[in-house]
Write a protein that binds this DNA or RNA. Structure first.
Length: 554
RNA sequence: GCGCCUGUAGCUCAGUUGGAUAGAGCAACGGACUUCUAAUCCGUAGGCCGCAGGUUCGAAUCCUGCCAGGCGUACCA
């Protein structure tokens, strides 16, 4: 629709120029917007203002010339008028909107899908929590955002893969093994000192108990380092299983689980370090190896191999990202917690140093989640072992509410997640507001079927009966959906879909309260059923992208 | 100190990438259920868009400088 208006304008400008009414036919970047105020019509353009300097004419004068030359072969315009400093506002005939319903009817679950991605290979990596403890709410937000972004991109024509990176190597895993082994020794009656840097949570004791029941006291007879590694591997695997289960419970599935250790096993880490060394962007200082990230915009150089010979996580991250591009991804998106933002410049540096453009690498920085219970903060710290796990949260408030709430805010702003509010089935908690639309429409259809009056097949004449302002308003909202998705995909901001759904829900509830769908007039009833079914499809479609269910009853 | 994020109605937040009179929800107040689910709707009230400059036809949005809060600034992960 917007495109049609655009064409009308372009043609008008051209014809005005040909007839000598406009000195230039330079089409500057024209914009056609949907104004927020109804009084400003269905669409409006600022072209006259933008052209003012080129045409050397006052904006209102240009607007007047353009409107005079507008032809409307299809007869879609009710009227157009000039307003304010030089806007041209277009008012469409209500009937122009009806075909949108047909489009939805035909596209069904694919309505809103576009090909703006043109099959570009994208990878979205998210959660990637270390297997040293269970997922907490913060990870939940990352999971909800990453999953929704990937879904939306994919729906808009990008070729998207979802990946989880497993930090199954290095210091943290060692510490995990140590923590478990100490608890194990403790259980077998040994006196141990449990250091602060070890993981304090109860789950460490559970893991130790499991090892004890499987192996008895066998580990005590082994060299400490060996016993410790056995504990580490066992624990990491168990915890990772738990993470997988939690994510499944949360409705998040990954296409690929990528192991950090595999990068060492295959020699990728050494390989990329060699390459960088040959390029002269790695040097030795104080017994350590440094990568000259400062050559690529970082504020200082970074260590890749410590003076004790251990590689840093940064080293394997370089190899990991190199590997992503080798796998053919044209763009790589990492979803990180905001506390990692200092890591971005060095990662960008690594991407650039290995021969890729900076803009092929994006980081979505998800701000922190403050978990509250009735306004009171709930303490969270993996180390201290005091935290509310994601699983607990899902069990308490439900998956749908949790996912929706995580997506009701721009990811760049911190989120207060109040467990009591999330449980409320009120308008404080908009997930139900949106789901209720779906349930209500299902209910209408059920009722219609009971009465045997539910004629839901497509019928142009019936749809043409939809002339109430609330009906046109609803259809206009439905028509916006593809644009919303495209904008959400381009900006990688899933919350736009969330807000759109709340808008659509609001338009529907208003309509529902004012007009009856199952009327005695069969044709009107059919038209209205077609309308609400279209609404239901879009609601379901949007909720699905967000990972939220669309219930038939509530 | 430096860097990133945030600052919009009493509270929680949107604001279509620079558009017209800045919008929702909650809380407050007043209304609507013998009719398809009241987890809903309708109405009233509520604003130096942190502050001060700048850019232009036009700024909550872009630039500069301040102020406040959060986070980061390791041979930690």
């Amino acid at each position: 629709m917007k495109q049609k208006i655009k064409n009308l304008i372009l043609l008008a400008v051209r014809s005005a120029h040909q007839k000598g009414d406009l000195p230039s036919d330079d089409i500057v970047e024209t914009e056609v917007d949907e104004p927020k105020a109804e009084a400003h019509g269905d669409f409006s353009t600022n072209i006259a203002m933008v052209m003012a300097s080129v045409q050397k004419m006052p904006p209102r004068k240009i607007a007047e010339v353009i409107t005079r030359h507008i032809e409307d072969p299809e007869g879609i315009l009710e009227k157009s008028e000039i307003a304010g400093p030089g806007f041209i506002n277009f008012f469409l005939k209500p009937a122009v909107w009806h075909p949108v319903l047909r489009e939805i009817h035909e596209a069904d679950t694919r309505y809103g899908a576009t090909d703006i991605g043109k099959g570009q290979k994208f990878q979205v990596e998210f959660v990637s929590s270390n297997p040293t403890g269970p997922l907490h709410v913060g990870h939940g937000r990352g999971a909800a955002v990453g999953d929704a972004v990937a879904n939306i991109l994919s729906f808009c024509g990008y070729d998207v893969q979802k990946e989880y990176y497993i930090n199954d190597s290095g210091r943290q895993i060692h510490t995990l093994g140590q923590s478990v082994f100490l608890r194990y020794q403790e259980m077998l009656g040994q006196k141990v000192k449990f250091p602060d840097e070890c993981y304090q949570g109860d789950y460490i004791r559970d893991l130790a108990a499991e090892i004890k029941s499987q192996k008895g006291d066998a580990l005590l007879g082994q060299p400490e380092e060996e016993a410790l590694m056995i504990c580490a591997r066992f624990a990491a695997e168990k915890i990772l299983d738990g993470i997988r289960d939690d994510l499944k419970l949360f409705g998040v599935e990954f296409d690929c689980w990528f192991s950090e250790q595999s990068l060492y096993d295959s020699g990728r880490v050494d390989q990329i370090l060699d390459i960088f060394r040959n390029q002269g962007i790695i040097y030795e200082k104080d017994g350590a190896l440094w990568f000259k990230t400062s050559d690529f915009g970082d504020e200082k150089d970074r260590v890749v191999v410590k003076n004790n010979g251990e590689t840093t996580y940064f080293a394997s991250d370089i190899a990991y990202h190199q590997d992503k591009y080798d796998r053919g991804f044209e763009r790589v998106v990492d979803v990180w917690g905001a506390d990692h933002h200092g890591y971005i410049p060095r990662m960008k540096a690594a991407v650039e140093a290995s021969g890729h453009r900076r803009d092929q690498f994006d980081v979505i920085l998800v701000q922190l989640v403050n978990l509250l219970r009735a306004g009171e903060p709930v303490a969270m710290s993996t180390r201290a072992g005091k935290f509310e796990t994601l699983k607990d949260v899902i069990n308490e408030v439900g998956r749908d509410a949790a996912r929706f709430i995580f997506l009701t805010r721009h990811y760049e702003s911190a989120l207060d997640f109040d467990l009591e509010v999330a449980k409320q089935k009120s308008n404080d908690n908009p997930v139900y507001y949106v789901q209720y639309v779906h349930a209500r429409i299902s209910s209408i259809v059920r009722k219609g079927n009971e009465q045997g009056t539910c004629e839901v097949s497509w019928d142009d004449k019936a749809v043409a009966r939809l002339i109430e302002p609330e009906e046109i308003d609803l259809i206009k909202t439905l028509a916006r959906y593809p644009d919303v998705l495209a904008g959400s995909a381009k900006s990688m901001e899933p919350h736009r879909v969330t807000y759109y759904l709340m808008d659509l829900a609001s338009a529907f509830h208003a309509y529902y309260n004012k007009h009856r769908v199952l009327t005695d007039d069969p044709q009107l009833r059919c038209g209205r059923l077609n309308l609400v079914l279209a609404v239901q499809k879009v609601i379901r479609n949007g909720l699905t992208l967000l990972g939220v269910s669309a219930p038939d009853t509530m």
